[in-house]
């Protein structure tokens, strides 16, 4: 029996799980470790933002260094390719908002106010947010997976040794493409969402399309629209930077690619919602 326990101990030791060196970590220790890890990652993210900004500055100073092919490719894949899913989901969101509101509004005979409800909530909050979340899941993850795979297969190293800056080829085109595409997708989501609301308003509340649009132009100001679309570039920067950053942090084998991809989606959605909350506070302070 003794040799068996010895063998087990050696096995455990061999795989770096020495029971003496690493007793079951207390929750306090785990908290400490994850805090340190999160802090280190935050610092690294900040460093990456700085590097990307410097590379962007270089590209603006020397426009000939801009990589147009990957830029256009990213506009196609992140923008045009996302139109169906963004359109469908924001349409459904408009339907849901109008449907949920219709029960309450009908009780007070305030049917026409469904226009205010759908118009303002879609343009100001829901359309930018749902678009950003879809793009984080669709493009942010693709960025992390692409760069992560390239890191694992030594393509990033090869790029550096061939004198091609990975930031210029892999990161800047993605950031710039998303900065252009996300506001446009948000406008598309506005249209589809409001259209969903219109259909529901006619079916549930008897508010016709003409009536809906007439009131829409009166109650929804240009400011509301601009606030929604104005948030999109910020969300775009968050999604692209976090996706690329997590891709570059990939170390080791293929399993690491999956892990970093997941992290990129979780982090970018988290940061997008935090940014949206900060916008709400800022706008209310500014009385917008």
């Amino acid at each position: 029996m003794r040799w068996r326990t010895n063998a087990l101990a050696r096995f455990i030791y061999h795989f770096g799980m020495n029971p003496e060196a690493r007793p079951t970590a207390s929750s306090l220790e785990n908290l400490g470790r994850s805090t340190v890890a999160a802090y280190a990652e935050g610092v690294a993210l900040l460093g990456f933002v700085g590097e990307s900004a410097a590379a962007l500055g270089q590209c603006i100073a020397h426009p000939s260094r801009m990589r147009w092919r990957p830029f256009l490719h990213n506009i196609g894949s992140a923008g045009v390719g996302a139109l169906p899913i963004v359109g469908l989901l924001s349409f459904l969101l408009g339907v849901v908002v109008a449907y949920q509101g219709s029960g309450q509004l009908r009780q007070y005979g305030a049917n026409i106010f469904v226009v205010d409800l759908v118009g303002i909530s879609m343009l100001r909050e829901f359309a930018p947010l749902i678009t950003a979340i879809i793009i984080a899941g669709r493009s942010g993850s693709a960025y992390a997976a692409q760069i992560g795979t390239m890191a694992v297969t030594e393509e990033i190293d090869a790029m550096r040794t061939l004198g091609i800056a990975p930031l210029e080829v892999l990161v800047l085109p993605k950031i710039l493409a998303l900065l252009i595409v996300l506001p446009l997708l948000t406008v598309f989501a506005d249209v589809c969402g409001v259209f969903g609301g219109m259909i529901m308003a006619r079916a549930q509340l008897g508010v016709g399309f003409d009536e809906f649009l007439e009131r829409f132009t009166k109650v929804v100001s240009v400011t509301t629209f601009l606030i929604g679309v104005g948030k999109a570039p910020v969300f775009a920067a968050i999604i692209a930077v976090v996706g690329c950053f997590q891709g570059f942090r990939t170390k080791g084998g293929a399993d690491s690619v999956g892990r970093q991809t997941t992290r990129s989606v979780v982090q970018s959605i988290f940061l997008v919602i935090v940014a949206d909350a900060l916008f709400s506070i800022a706008f209310s302070a500014l009385d917008l």
Binding site: T149, T153, E155, A158, T161, L162
Partner: peptide, 29 residues
């Protein structure tokens, strides 16, 4: 960097380019 060449353990070839494009890439750049 242009005065040395590196052959990586796993090749480090770009998966999105053909072999000939991979080889020609340093020249194009």
């Amino acid at each position: 960097r242009l005065r040395w060449g590196v052959m990586f353990q796993h090749g480090g070839l770009f998966g999105s380019l053909t072999v000939l494009e991979n080889i020609g890439l340093p020249l194009r750049e």
